[in-house]
Design a protein around this nucleic acid. Structure first.
Lengths: 334, 334
DNA sequence: ACGGGCGTTTTGAACGTTAAAAACATCCGC
DNA sequence: GCGGATGTTTTTAACGTTCAAAACGCCCGT
C-alpha cells in the first residue's frame, strides 16, 4: 500500500507537497500538481485515514446507537439509516454503529467512544420523554444532534431536527375533510408520550378550525398493535359515533382500523377514510394502500449532518420539518 | 484528554510501561501495575484508537453496506444490525455503515474503504444470485464474510453463514402435518431466486417424505406483496385443491394468505394452517399471530464475526444454521 | 568476585499524516 | 542591483501509540 513518502519519491517532490496536492492543490504550481497527481494515480495511493485522524484529531465518524427495545419506528429504521449514511458520506463522513443500554446507563458507552476517538459526535434518535442523554452529552461537551425533540422539557438541551406531528395530523384531517369527511376520529396512545400528544393536538386543533366535532372521537390505545387499532375502531363504531374518517397515530393502528372496517363490510376508502403515520413498508403492502404521513428522511438526515458538522459553536440549531401526505386507497373520496 | 505520556509522568514510569500495563499486564511487577492502574483511573485515561490503529494497522472496524433497494429482508434488518453490532462489540470491534451502488459498480467503494484503512473487512448481506462482490473481494485479498450463500455457483467464493431454508420449510411442513394437515400448499417466488428454490425444495422433499401430495400445490407469486399472497391463495382455493395448510416463502405472502382465508370466512389456524418466513415484526402484530421461521440472528451475527476476525488464513469457513419455528395462532391445530 | 540468566523497565524508532515555519525562487519597482 | 512582495517548495516537529532492542537490577552458581 503506497504512502505519501513513496508518492513523493516517485514525483520527486517532498512529502508535504504531495499532502498539499491533496488538501490544498491551489498552493502548487500547475505543472507540479499534475506531476504529483500522475504519481498518485500511478501508485494508486489512498491516504491513510488513521494517520490523518491522529494528526488532525478528527475521525470523520458519527456514532449512532442502534436501538433494541421495541418501537414502531423500527419499521422505517432502514430508511433512516440509509438516508443518514448517504448524508454523512456527502461530507466525507461515515456512520459508526454501536449498542448501549437505554437511558443514563448507556452514557459511559457514549463517553468511551468519544474519549477513545472512535467518533467525533453522535446522532441520537428514539428520543424519549425526559431523555437523559441530551443533557449529559451537553454537559460533557460532546457534540451531538437529536432526531426528535425531548418532550416535557421547557428548553431543548441541544440541537435537534424533528417532524411536525401536529402539522401532520392537521394535514390528514384536512385531506379527509376535502374528500368529504365530517366526523373524523383519532386513534392515539396514552398521554405519557410527547409524540402522541403532539399528533393528537394537531387533529384536535384542525378539527376545531374546520368546525368538526371532536367530542368522544379520540381513543387512546394501550399499545401499538393491529388488535388495539381494531378494538378502538370497533369501540367507536359500536358507540354509534357515525365516524367517516380515522386519523391514526401510527400505520399499525391504522391497519388495525382497516381490518375492523373490512370485517364489518365497510369499504375503507369509501365509507370511512383512514390515514396512518410514518409511511412504513406496511402502508404500501396492504390493499387498499394506506394513506400515510411520510417522514422526509433525506431532509431529516441532511439537516442532522449539517447541524452536527456545521457549527461547533454554542448556538443550538433547531429544525422542524413537515411530513408529506402520501395518498393511497384508504382515503379515496367516499 | 490524558495521554500515555501524562499517565507515565504521573505514575513515574516510562510511556512504554503504561502501554504494557494495558496490553501485557503480566510483564509488570504487581506493585508497578497497581500504581500505573491508579494513575490511569485517576487521570481517566482512554487510549487513542487512531494512534493505536496507525501503529498496529488494524482499525477494529467492520464495514457493512446498508442496502437501499427494496427487499423483504428489510423487515428484520434492525434485528440483524443489532445482533451484528453486539457481536462485534464482544470482540472490541464496531460496525461502520456505508452505502454503495449494487453489484460490481459498488466495488470501488469497498476498495476505497479498505485502502484508506477505514475498515479491516466487510460483512456482506443481501447476497444475490451470481453476486459479483464476493469474487471481487477475494481477488483483492480483502477480508469478508457473507451472510447468505451465492446461489447458482458451484463453489462458494469465500466464507459464509446462512440459514437452512430447505430445513425451515421442512420444519413448517412437519409442524402442519403434526397438527393434522394433509394437503399443504407452497407460496413461492419465481425460479430465478436461489433462496426461493431452497425453501421450495424443503417443502417438496418433506411432503414427499411424509407421503403428502405436491402436484398443483405450489404457486409462484410475481412479487412479495400481500396482494400476491392473497391472489395465490384464492387461486388455490378456486381450483378446488382442498388445501388445509400453506407454507409461504415470506411473512408478507403468508399475511396475504391469511387475509384471503379470512375474507372467505375460513378461520386461519383452524381450517387452514399458515406459516411464514423470517418472523418479521408483522408476524407478531396480526391476529391470529403468524407462525413463522425465525432466523437465529444472534447466532448468525456471532458466527459472522468469528469467521471474519478469527482465521485470517485461506481456509474458507462455512456455517449453515437452523431456523427456529415460532408457533402462533395461524397454525393452531385444526 | 564474576558472568549468566531472568524478570522488569526504559530507550529509540517507527506508523503516515499535517501544521507551522523556514527556505527558496521569481518578479517588480525604483 | 537591491529591498520587498508574492508564490512555491522544503524542513522540522508533532499527533499518541506500539515494537524491538537495549539496559537495568537482582539472584544464583561456581
Amino acid at each position: 500500500m503506497a504512502t505519501l513518502k513513496q508518492v513523493a519519491a516517485h514525483a520527486e517532490v517532498s512529502v508535504q507537497t504531495v499532502s498539499n496536492a491533496l488538501n490544498a492543490p491551489h498552493r502548487l504550481r500547475p505543472d507540479t500538481l499534475e506531476r504529483v497527481n500522475k504519481s498518485i494515480e500511478l501508485l494508486n495511493y489512498r491516504p491513510n485515514r488513521n494517520a490523518r485522524s491522529l494528526r488532525t484529531s478528527a475521525v470523520e465518524l458519527i456514532g449512532y446507537c442502534v436501538p433494541n427495545w421495541p418501537n414502531q419506528t423500527h419499521l422505517v429504521m432502514d430508511q433512516f439509516l440509509h438516508a443518514l449514511c448517504a448524508a454523512a458520506e456527502r461530507t466525507g463522513r461515515h456512520i459508526l454503529l454501536f449498542t448501549a443500554p437505554p437511558g443514563v446507563d448507556g452514557m459511559p458507552t457514549y463517553d468511551d467512544l468519544h474519549a477513545r476517538r472512535l467518533v467525533d459526535g453522535f446522532v441520537l434518535s428514539q428520543t424519549e420523554t425526559h431523555d437523559p442523554r441530551h443533557g449529559w452529552l451537553k454537559e460533557q461537551g460532546i457534540p451531538f444532534v437529536s432526531f426528535g425533540r425531548v418532550w416535557k422539557q421547557t428548553t431543548q438541551p441541544g440541537p435537534w431536527v424533528d417532524v411536525d406531528g401536529a402539522a401532520g395530523s392537521a394535514m390528514a384531517v384536512r385531506h379527509l375533510y376535502e374528500t368529504g369527511r365530517r366526523r373524523i376520529a383519532f386513534l392515539g396512545w396514552p398521554k405519557t408520550s410527547g409524540l402522541a400528544e403532539d399528533r393528537a393536538g394537531g387533529w384536535r386543533d384542525e378539527c376545531k378550525a374546520l368546525g368538526l366535532p371532536i367530542s368522544g372521537l379520540s381513543v387512546r390505545c394501550r399499545e401499538d398493535s393491529l388488535d388495539e387499532g381494531a378494538r378502538a375502531t370497533a369501540a367507536l363504531l359500536d358507540a354509534g359515533r357515525e365516524i367517516d374518517g380515522i386519523v391514526a397515530l401510527s400505520d399499525v393502528l391504522a391497519l388495525g382500523a382497516l381490518r375492523e372496517l373490512t370485517r364489518r363490510g365497510l369499504t375503507a376508502g369509501h365509507q370511512v377514510g383512514v390515514t396512518g403515520f410514518d409511511d412504513s413498508p406496511l402502508a404500501d403492502v396492504v390493499s387498499p394502500g394506506l394513506t400515510s404521513l411520510r417522514q422526509p428522511m433525506d431532509d431529516i438526515a441532511a439537516e442532522l449532518i449539517t447541524i452536527l458538522t456545521g457549527a461547533p459553536d454554542g448556538t443550538p440549531s433547531e429544525r422542524l420539518l413537515q411530513p408529506e401526505l402520501v395518498i393511497r386507497g384508504s382515503s379515496a373520496p367516499g
